[in-house]
Design a protein around this nucleic acid. Sequence first.
DNA 1: ACTATATCCTGTATGC
DNA 2: TGCATACAGGATATAG
Length: 286
Amino acid sequence: MPELPEVETIRAGLERLVVGKRIAEVSVHHPRSVRRHPGTPADFARALAGRTIVGISRRGKYLWFAFDDSDAMLAHLGMSGQFRVDCAGEAPPPNTRVEFSFELSDIVLRFVDQRMFGGLSLSAGGVLGPPEIAHIAPDLLSQEVDLDGLAAKIGGKRSGIKRVLLDQSVVSGIGNIYADETLWRARLHYGHPACALPAGRIVELLEHAQGVLREALAAGGTSFDALYVGVAGEAGYFERSLAVYGREGLPCPRCAAAIVREPFMGRSSFRCPKCQPHYRQQCPAQ
DNA sequence: ACTATATCCTGTATGC
DNA sequence: TGCATACAGGATATAG
C-alpha cells in the first residue's frame, strides 16, 4: 500500500521519536512478520534486544533502522504495514505483529500489519544500505537520481510505460496511486510503449512524478482508510488532490470527461479517456 | 528480455 | 441476516 510519500512520512516520524533509543525487549506476535529474517522469530527478538537506533533511512518503499554497529533492521510495509509509536500503557492497535520496548522510555514501537505482506528482518552489515535491497533503484526524491540517465534507461524498454514506472529496479517509490496520477499529468496512456516516447517526453514524465511525490509528501501522504496512518495514527490528506485514482465515473479536473477504471497488471488503472487516449505509436523495430 | 499469472494474507464492501 | 464474491496502496517467483 504505502508508496514513497507515505513511507517517507513514517520515516520522518520514526526519526523524531525513536532515534537515540536502546531496544529493551522485542515481542513477535506473529511469525509471518519476520519470515524474511534469517532465523526463527525468537532469534529475531534476541538479535534486536540491546541495539541502539542511530538513524532511520529509506530507499524507495524500504526503510531501515541503523544501529550503532554495522547492522540494521530492514522493514517493508507491504500493502498494509504501519509503524506506531504509542505510550507503553496504551492498548495495542488491532493486528499488532511485533512490539519493541526501550530502555529508560515510556514509549513502545509497534509494527502493525493486517495483511502481513510486509515484514522485518535483521540485516547484518546493512547499516549503510542493506544488501537485500541492492536491486532497488534510487527513488525520484533522492540526491543520486539522474533524470537524463534514467530517461535513457526507460526509453530502452519495450514494456508499457506504467509497468516501467512500477518496476522498482528501474525507479523506486512509485506505486499504483502515484503512477496513475503521474500519467494523468503527463497525458499518457498506461500502455504507451516506453521506447516509443522521445527522451524529452520521458524526462517530462519523471518531472511530473517528482511533482506528485513532493506534493503528496507535503500533505503527509494519501489515506483512503485506516490502513495508512502516520506513526501517531494521523491520516494524510493528499486524497483530496487526486485527479484520477479511485475516481471512476467522476469528472476529469482538466476536461470534465468521466474517469474510467480498467484492469491492468492484475489491479486497477484509472485514466481520463480524453486526456489519456489510446496510443498509436510503436517502438522502432529491432 | 518481456509478459502474464499466481501467490502470500486479512478485512471490508457489495450483491444476491 | 447470511453467504459468496470482488477488491485493496506490493513484491516476488515461475512459466511461457
